[in-house]
Design a protein around this nucleic acid. Structure first.
Lengths: 347, 347
DNA sequence: CTGAAAGCGCTTACAG
DNA sequence: CTGAAAGCGCTTACAG
């Protein structure tokens, strides 16, 4: 292995000068810098990260914590953040919670992040009261994306979830719907996620604004993925309460609901209108109307904020916009879905 | 910060003993180990990774290289691999190429991986002849998943892509189709990906086995995502050659094709049957028939192979299975799709 | 602008 | 089974 001594000898300078020259520090004459750079290139020298870290106190790593990398929103944010971080010379340490509470606790309580990263990016992380102490004990700068739970002292990058939900439900109301079901996350698991609370509030605000009294029988909790959406729609149908539209908290849940509706022979949007929030990659493929949020942009902005020379600061609020496709239409004449035996013609 | 000296003093032993005791090395009496463990816990000691790495020569990190974390297959493999790696005490350094050739070159040519990881997992990485030298210069153990390009000396974990494609096309043939289009990856970009070549071979083998002469006019290249699949189907329709079924190289391309077919008023499966390979999370939502491959299992097996005490070795071949949903059916009476003006009833 | 030397916090032969 | 001491390869005051 080529070490810094080798480069120093080759360039005829001290190791201190090599270190300064290679890192672009000032206080090195241009001529010397050139000589060092050439020597380093000639030898194929790369500084040992472990040694630099130990001596310099910086790890050059950023920890990215994400609930489930397999979900559209999270993978999109991570892709954008990873790109920006590598551009800025940082390595990315990935911590995927995989939906496991245990993984969350382990990450926060143990030293998994201590001394391993210079900064933390938490995407939609629900934090319990106890967790704040653990996070602040890390004494690391950080940023939250898509406001899981705001962390005191950390800036956040997010959308206005209340407005997004209001726009989604408002669109349905504008089409003439009044019996609008809501598929949401489990309040037990994710109470602390502001996004969930906000999207619930937006739903209620839109209804009230239109003079519609919210009906608790129309609100169903479920996991925020396909299976959860499918199960929630199933539960909704079992309740037997009439509805002409479904507002799902995210596109994946909406697509899950779509599966269930189809399985029951219900047509979308003829029998039931369906709207989500996200603008998932596959939303066009299933013709899903949704409120689009800029996922990649949130990842980029989070890195920008985190690496700002003046330190992470300021909250960023990004715009969303209603994207109308084929899954929403005026309600049918007869109120509520009719279970037909015919299975429809589209897969 | 608590250092190893603090623990040594607290436990009344030398730092060498603390080091051994905490890492579970032999040659430490049980009584001493207990004393050290207690002292460490009491003080909340965590060994500095940088110092351990520099002194010990191991980084405790594994580099996971993936083409696009946003695609279903890759995020699923990464999630499973990340979980297994953390279980084994490794940190995960994520390198997402983002579909950029430049990122690939940078990763291989520069020292991005040198000294930063103890092992590498490459998922569907296409390697050019020049890249092999760069990879072997890393002198690191590694494993390839879903055979982008096999790396000499590295084991691989994958499915039998020839068989998967054969099963997919065989299913269509069994239903009575003879004009079967193929949507595949761009041969220019990804020639080295064995998966692509293999899935092409499977298609041709199935046709020949049934006595069907492959028609080049039925084969269209495109990107392997939604947009690529949609564009490929568009191109196929523009060609005006008759076909009754489409076999797509992956589910995302298939779902993209679905969008296009729907846009043209074609019904699936009444007018055109559609099959993919993967069993994407959302395949049930769109009723897509596919050949399922075990993505998470590939991630787990790759880690297992990589961390095997005897070093990475052996190739693992995992089974696939045909999963029939609603997107495939016998061909319509009239040969080839008819463009209707009616848009159908399902989003 | 440059260098000699201490120090970052561990691990590892080596000796006992 | 345990300890004293060297060493891992850098960075950083400090001095010039």
């Amino acid at each position: 292995m080529i070490r810094i001594d080798d480069v120093a000898r080759e360039a005829g300078v001290s190791t201190a000068t090599v270190s300064r020259a290679l890192r672009g520090l000032p206080m090195v004459s241009e001529a010397t810098r050139q000589r060092v750079l050439e020597a380093a290139t000639r030898l194929g020298y790369i500084a040992s990260p472990s040694a630099s870290r130990l001596a310099g106190g910086r790890t050059g790593c950023v920890g990215v914590v994400v609930p489930r990398i397999t979900r559209w929103f999270f993978s999109t944010v991570v892709e954008a953040a990873e790109h920006s971080l590598h551009e800025a010379g940082y390595d990315v340490l990935l911590f995927n919670l995989g939906g496991s509470e245990q993984a969350r606790l382990k990450l926060l309580r143990t030293g998994a992040l201590r001394q391993r990263v210079d900064a933390i990016m938490m995407i939609s992380m629900p934090l319990q009261p106890d967790d704040f102490a653990a996070v602040s004990r890390l004494e690391l700068p950080g940023v939250t994306v898509s406001s899981g739970t705001p962390v005191p002292g950390w800036p956040s990058v997010r959308i206005d979830d209340v407005a997004a939900a209001r726009d989604a439900v408002g669109h349905l109301i504008g089409l003439g719907h009044t019996r609008i079901a809501r598929i949401c996350g489990k309040s037990s698991d994710e109470l602390a996620l502001t996004a969930h609370v906000d999207r619930q509030r937006g739903y209620h605000e839109a209804l009230r604004h239109a003079g519609i009294v919210p009906d608790p029988a129309l609100e169903v909790e479920g996991a925020l993925d396909l299976a959860g959406g499918a199960a929630a729609a199933e539960e909704l149908l079992r309740r037997g309460v009439p509805f002409t539209a479904i507002y799902a908290i995210c596109d994946e849940a909406a697509m899950g609901a779509l599966t269930t509706l189809r399985r029951h022979g219900l047509r979308v949007p003829e029998d039931v209108s369906l709207i989500g929030i996200d603008d998932h990659d596959l939303a066009p493929a299933v013709g899903l109307t949704t409120v689009a949020q800029p996922a990649a942009e949130q990842g980029r902005r989070a890195v920008e904020t985190l690496l700002s020379p003046t330190g992470p600061q300021g909250d960023v609020l990004l715009p969303t916009h209603l994207t109308i496709r084929e899954s929403t239409a005026p309600p049918p004449r007869t109120l509520g879905p009719e279970i037909t035996s015919e299975d429809g013609e589209r897969p």
